[in-house]
Amino acid sequence: MSRALALKLEPYFYTAPSLLLIAAIMLVPLVTGLSYAFHDLILLDPLSGDFVGLDHFRELLDDDGFWTALRNTVVWTAVSVALQFTFGLILALLLNRPFPGRGLVQALVFLPWAVPGFLSGLTWAWLFNPVIGPLPHWLQGLGLLATPQNILSDPHLALWGPIAANVWWGIPFFAITLLAALQSIPKDIYEAAAMDGAGPLLRFRRVTLPLLAPTIAITVMLRTVWVANFAELIVVMTKGGPADATQILSSYIFTLAFQRLDFGYASAVAAVLLLLLLAYAAAVMVLRHAMTERA
């Protein structure tokens, strides 16, 4: 009897340590943090702390900073993920065929992933600095810039700086997961397709892509959520400037909380961001479900 009970409880023993830790350190603070969104909470201001209901959310609607940051979040996330994915897939396909020195090449191209995020930001900020970095001079040579200026201080171009750093840093993530998925496709499927006279392009479209699709859906979804939340590069490279031109929602939250010390309003923006990301993830899951049902 007690043995049967112990067997039934066994899975919970294995999951309990992780679950308790995540609940205590992440979920309870998340609930507390979200509750700030309904309070007037300004750090170091003893008069704040009142319940204000939906006031912060009403304030959001008229906040130009919020709408700019929302637009930038979409551009930042879509462009970064699209480029990371495209180059990551190309790299995975290149690495998937045997060649001498593959181990070394693979280690080298994956190296950017090991670079701490803020250090990638600093490095790229230095590369874009015309005094110390080559990029402005190269961009001028290519005719993309009229003078070797720092694009990070140009409101129209600045967002491309953090995007470049983000693409450089994120390619290995897609390359690693896609390469793993590619290597798990059984070789005989390709051989059979080749016997039937399918050329490389047709094999890629009819065999590789459909088999990669589940991995692609999951990694793109996780990555999108993660990149949308990733403020470090922007905070380090531009601090959201010049004039809020590169502010995304997560860096805007950072600015609100730690420069204006307005934790209430910052939490309201964070709540909106969380809702948008949950809606996005749910949409992807439904779509993926619908596609597997059909297939």
Binding site: G33, L43, V225, I253
Partner: peptide, 26 residues
Amino acid sequence: KAWVVGVMLISQMFPLIIIVAPIFRL
């Protein structure tokens, strides 16, 4: 099981900045 997996997924979905102050107070 689905709930446990769901909790773990949600913990990956929000900007961690929002829990800095609560964690400090904890």
